[in-house]
């Protein structure tokens, strides 16, 4: 089944203080696909996602053991450049978290902190491309000075995706990106994800199983901090290898 693995974890264990959040997770996430991670609340799926750009570092008393290899490099190594890592592995959060700045400055922030572009016309061009990629340009091109928080939630979430895209990442982590959106907006964002999968490696955490079935090429099922099963989405939903997975998919628990 395997194309090249973009991200691979080896015996990954994570503790928040005394709480054992991830246990022996071994996962190989293929490049340029959509991978969904599903499971009941508190199963560790967000925690796993946040390992891939080391956002867990921000939580006090977090301990990680094992290896997380992205493009052949162990990102848990102390020499890892976190800033470069987070540019390469972008993240979209559960609630759209645009800054209380203008639309334009929301996008400019990332370019600026990475010193990617300095000329104003280059920045404008990149901002335009970013907004076009997420389908916001036509609506917002005349209102770039507007405070981003006055947009609808869907627009805000698209802006958050654009904010990640213009930094030219390889991997985009999406932590329940549609949970704050209505069903129509959800479908439209999912469409966007299907377009983006041609260029990026997308990993989406969701507890909406239909969503995983709709957008993901591969799906991993997690339960109580363990990765129970990882396979083709098709196979997971029609013919899972584990009884636990089947019970969850059928809605017996969760």
């Amino acid at each position: 089944m395997e194309p090249e693995a973009k991200i691979e974890t080896v015996d990954l264990n994570l503790h928040y203080g005394a709480f054992h959040a991830l246990t022996d997770v071994n996962i190989r996430i293929p490049a340029r696909n959509v991978t969904a991670i599903i499971g009941p609340s508190g199963c560790g799926k967000s925690t796993l996602l946040r390992c891939f750009n080391r956002m867990n570092d921000l939580v006090e008393h977090t301990q990680v053991q094992g290896r997380i290899v992205i493009d052949g490099e162990d990102i848990l190594a102390p020499t890892t450049d976190l800033i470069a890592l987070r540019r390469k592995v972008g993240m979209v959060f559960q609630r759209p978290n645009v800054f209380a700045l203008s639309i334009y400055n929301n996008l400019k922030f990332g370019l600026r902190i990475h010193g990617m572009l300095s000329r104003a016309d280059q920045i404008r061009e990149t901002v335009r491309q970013g907004l076009e990629q997420v389908g916001l340009w036509d609506d917002l091109k005349d209102r770039l000075g507007l405070n981003a928080q006055s947009l609808t939630l869907e627009q805000q979430q698209r802006l958050c995706i654009a904010r990640v895209l213009i930094l030219r990442p390889d991997v985009i982590l999406l932590d329940e990106p549609c949970s704050a959106l209505d069903p129509i907006a959800t479908l439209r964002v999912e469409e966007l994800l299907r377009v983006l999968r041609q260029e990026y490696t997308l990993i989406i955490v969701t507890h909406n199983m239909q969503q995983a079935a709709r957008v993901a090429d591969f799906t991993g099922f997690m339960y109580l901090g363990r990765l129970i099963e990882f396979d083709d989405t098709q196979k997971i939903f029609t013919n899972p290898g584990q009884q636990l997975t089947e019970d969850y998919i059928r809605g017996s628990f969760g």
């Binding site: 956002m55 987070r86 993240m91 959060f93 902190i113 904010r163």
Partner: peptide
Amino acid sequence: EAAYGLGAT
């Protein structure tokens, strides 16, 4: 979180 996620110091 958003800022750190984008790689800000």
